[in-house]
Amino acid sequence: MNKNYIILTALMIVLAGGLLIVPERQKYQQIDPDELLWEIIQPTRYVSTDKVAQLIIEGDPSLELVDVRPAADYEKFSLPKSINIPLDSLLQESYQDYLGIDGMKVLFFSNDDIKADQAWVLAKRLGYDNIYVMKGGLNCWIRTVIQPKKPSTDSPSTEFALYDFRKGAQMYFTGAKTETSGKSSNKKAVKIQRKKKKTAASGGC
């Protein structure tokens, strides 16, 4: 028999046999590292506490609040209508059904950003989209929505508008008495000076 045939036969057997020896390649289906880094630096993945308060008050049906703190903390206090998925249980099969629901925005929060951020990265790496983090977490929530500070008198009007909103939200969430800045109602009517129309006679040239 031709020597070339024998060489090629041997080569083919060695190559095919080699496949049996090489260890199986571990494949993790997850997001590309470049893409993950790009997503991490996007500020749009954060939602402010004010925005969250607004969404809760408006009853946005597509909002899914996920408290990633331990169950004991969740029992003591959490946001209304939130569900509890402790960070260390996020990867459990039973909790996966809560993520990746079509049309739902998942918002992670914890006491601060750190745990929620970790949950966000885990969920992102699991391939879920439409996930967000509440900026500042519950600490910021208490500071801004539950105990809003009155802005100083020389603050811009937007600060007062925000304060009013926060007081309203505070009322909604805690049942506190109404007490707004009172500034917005005392707004002076702004006189708008319009440009005088030119009469036909005073036309140029």
């Binding site: 036969t9 057997i13 095919a16 496949l19």
Partner: peptide, 15 residues
């Protein structure tokens, strides 16, 4: 059966 074993079997059958 893993793809590697099937490939090996095919090589043997082919040869």
């Amino acid at each position: 059966i893993s793809a590697q074993w099937i490939a090996f079997a095919f090589v043997v059958i082919a040869l």
